[in-house]
Design a protein around this nucleic acid. Sequence first.
DNA 1: TGGTTGATGTCAGTTACTGTCATAGGCAGT
DNA 2: ACTGCCTATGACAGTAACTGACATCAACCA
Lengths: 188, 188
Amino acid sequence: MGRWKPDARARLEKAALALYREHGFAQTTVAEIAERAGLTERTFFRYFADKREVLFSGAGTLQQHLISALGDAPSSLAPIDAVGAAVEAAAELFEKRRDFARKRQAVISENAELQERERIKLASLASALEDALHRRGVANPAASLAAEMGVTVFRIAFERWINQDDNRTLAQIMRECLNELKLVTAGK
Amino acid sequence: MGRWKPDARARLEKAALALYREHGFAQTTVAEIAERAGLTERTFFRYFADKREVLFSGAGTLQQHLISALGDAPSSLAPIDAVGAAVEAAAELFEKRRDFARKRQAVISENAELQERERIKLASLASALEDALHRRGVANPAASLAAEMGVTVFRIAFERWINQDDNRTLAQIMRECLNELKLVTAGK
DNA sequence: TGGTTGATGTCAGTTACTGTCATAGGCAGT
DNA sequence: ACTGCCTATGACAGTAACTGACATCAACCA
């Protein structure tokens, strides 16, 4: 047993989400979050670069899984389908956490600053996918475009999964969304 | 002649870009911008919601042109091609301002907060395009996907236009980029 | 002529975020 | 057991973005 209560980071994340849901992001101060977590404001900023970042710690994990899944995709697949396989595989990370995802997304959708942060995280994902495609031998602008398509499919499918009532899996919705994208770009 | 020097807004924009270029975005204070423009900090915040927004006043104009151009596109065009025609038409806004665009983009590319703002402006463009496609009778997710593809093409083509040395027009690059996107999604 | 208006100034306040140093419990080596 | 180091946290002061309330004052207008 350490000197301090364990999992300071997780306690801060939990307190932040709870307070953002109770009073809204803008109305919550970092001091309040820290207090609920039994820490000080200064410690909050040792774990998170800013007040928004506390909602986005999962972004790194998602990126790792995406890149790893893209590495595992058979090299016979066209870039767009390799990316499709990667986002579908990464969907696994969320299937059992729809409830948490919904709560978190509800907070984000209420605040413009949080939407900015979410978008930049998605842009970072696209950039990482692009790099991975380069390593696969895909040149630009194809790599860049395929990566962007993948992230767009991910985002739109995720949004539909969050809002739907029935029980299609995120992976299913992503596959449908990619097929729809292929139809759209084919001019249908 | 009014009581005050005219074009306070334009003076603030000019001073801000100059200072962001000279010392960087983070190292520039709003008070410095206001002083160079012959105004006070408080007045800066009457014109711009925050320190970043001063670089994005053109976003509204771009959005209007995009929507208007999409309205003008023949209804025989498939959604993706109507969007393509719109972004190509909107390129006109930039052709004579590559120098300004380069300076501005150099500032943005050096700062993460500004990139966040740029991404959210592009997201707003996509949302406006999606609405316009709905008015054209396009349903979701096709409308949403076509809009996102259009914005992605716009962004990637814009980046290439900024960085290229030769003199292809932005509109040409956008057309090429859209064609490339069609190839990529066709699995080539 | 006197009241109204609208862009700007002044000023105080909140809060996000940073730099710096202090504290204190645990651990390793002797 | 003593010593010193390590590391997570606290304490505290400081900067600057942003906001709200009120003052000013030249132009315009009835």
